[in-house]
Design a protein around this nucleic acid. Structure first.
Length: 473
DNA sequence: TGAAATGTTGGGGCG
DNA sequence: ACGCCCCAACATTTC
């Protein structure tokens, strides 16, 4: 029996963790998390994500401790640390869950080689996605560029294995040294801006609670309710999924179970709708896998020399939630304070940045990356490209959200807006999404930074500029 | 997983 | 009673 290092990354859970099972069945296990601030990583973890990581690791360590297994924490170059720890502990294998982001894939390949030279084997397991991106192919064998046929192909493939139970873990009797999590400085200080994050409970138990909570309420009206930011009708699972505190196949099988138990067409439809949203996650990784420049470069070539604006003060107004459009500003302040933003509002805020302000989608993606607790390279990049109109299966560029109409449609009472913009608390419903039309403009709230009709025409004109070479060709 | 402009229809007011 | 206009209400097209 040999020792095995379990290198935990975005799979911070003990149930349905194939890498953990692989390691556990070989003998003694050394669960390891490495905090690697490699400067070569183009997308180092953002501020909000670090907060989540801190608490997720705390939860994981506590859970492992219940089984007398220590979680080893080490900071620094992943390759060096793995080689060192293997040497110290006599481990001859490293198990991990496969990653799909470009930097991580290249890193894993490099490390596999380096370990191999020292006769340390690597066992890579699947667990982060339902469908491996390279396994889903079009008839012609290429990658999908449209969501619906992609998801249909996934569903046709089906065959999602049952979740694995948590194995019995035998700790390593040599007990390697570990960093103290507090010393990593993952939590914000001076100022501590994480006060609004209290609603979250990072970790596997928190993830399971969220899922149960979703099944016991929001599910009943998911298809429509998911679009209403004023009510808590989404799953709020995204950060848990990103850190691997719950696996997509646990969700998949739970969905199947509830479909069977509930015997209700309506409930099944809601559950399918929810799975379809998981499908977008799969689609995003499919795109990122086949087009690794997705985070930086427009998927559609004709968008690559789009006449974007570089106006820093408008970018800042957007970041700070000071555009004068309540729906946009409420979203941006929700993001800043709570580390999340309702999906419907993400679309509105993103549309506003790229179409009303003509600021590059990459700027928005960077801001989200730093502020979101669920910051995920594939989802974030694909989402922004989708809104900007340059992505795969994207919203057509001329589909420009009117922030007033969107507000009236999805936040009819202004509940959401009032929550995040206290200066608009007393504005009557009629004007809650267009306070500038009031006789007396509410104090403390700004006028729109740009007039909608003007911005719309300008955006359409800009679109015409890039489209020309193609319509004449 | 839009919005605005344009086109069409049909009911009712009114000369 | 009839034609005409107005204009919701809905449908289609365009961006």
């Amino acid at each position: 029996m040999k020792n095995t290092i379990l290198w935990l990354r975005n799979d911070l859970r003990l149930h349905d963790n194939p890498a953990l099972c692989e390691a556990a069945q070989r003998g003694q296990v050394i669960p390891l998390y490495i905090y690697d601030e490699d400067r070569q990583n183009p997308w180092p973890m953002g501020g909000a994500s670090k907060w989540w990581l801190h608490h997720s690791l705390t939860a994981l360590a506590k859970e492992l401790q219940k089984h007398n297994v220590p979680l080893i924490l080490r900071r620094g170059d992943a390759q060096r640390i793995l080689l060192e720890l293997a040497e110290e502990s006599g481990a001859d294998m490293v198990c991990w869950t496969r990653s799909y982001a470009p930097y991580e894939m290249a890193r894993d390949e490099r490390i596999t080689k380096a370990l191999g030279q020292k006769n340390i084997a690597v066992k890579e397991s699947q667990g982060f996605l339902l469908f491996a991106p390279e396994k889903i192919r079009t008839q012609q064998g290429g990658c999908f560029k449209v969501y619906t046929p992609f998801w249909k192909a996934c569903l046709k493939q089906g065959n999602i294995a049952q979740p694995l139970p948590m194995p019995k873990i035998e700790p390593c009797d040599r007990s390697p040294a570990s960093d103290r999590l507090e010393d990593w400085g993952l939590l914000p200080s001076q100022p501590d801006w994480s006060g609004g994050f209290a609603q979250w409970q990072p970790g596997e138990a928190g993830a399971q609670m969220r899922w149960e909570k979703f099944l016991n309420g929001p599910l009943e009206n998911y298809s429509n309710g998911r679009d209403m930011p004023g009510i808590d009708n989404t799953s709020r699972l995204s950060p848990h999924l990103h850190f691997g505190e719950i696996s997509p196949r646990q969700i998949w099988h739970s969905v199947e179970f509830h479909k069977m138990m509930r015997q209700s067409t309506i409930v099944s439809q809601h559950l399918d709708k929810f799975l379809a949203e998981m499908g977008w996650r799969e689609f995003s990784y499919h795109l990122l896998y086949h087009f690794p420049q997705l985070p930086e470069l427009a998927f559609r070539e004709d968008f690559r020399d789009f006449p974007w604006s570089k106006d820093q003060s408008l970018l800042q107004a957007w970041q700070q939630g000071r555009t004068g459009y309540p729906m946009v500003d409420a979203g941006m302040r929700e993001l800043w304070h709570s580390g999340t933003m309702h999906n419907r509002v993400r679309m509105i805020a993103a549309s506003f940045l790229t179409k009303h302000l003509l600021i590059p989608w990459q700027e928005g993606a960077k801001w989200f990356w730093d502020c979101l607790l669920d910051a995920d390279l594939a989802n974030n990049s694909a989402g922004w490209q989708w809104v900007a109109g340059c992505g795969a299966d994207a919203a057509p560029y001329f589909r420009i959200f009117n922030p007033v109409l969107q507000g009236q449609k999805f936040d009819p009472d202004g509940e959401y807006v009032r929550k995040w913009l206290p200066e608009l608390r007393d504005v009557p419903k009629k004007y809650i999404h267009c306070p500038w039309q009031m006789e007396r403009v509410p104090e403390g709230y700004m006028l729109p930074v740009v007039e909608h009709g003007f911005a719309r025409d300008r955006a359409l004109k800009a679109y015409g500029q890039i489209k020309k070479p193609f319509s004449t060709g």
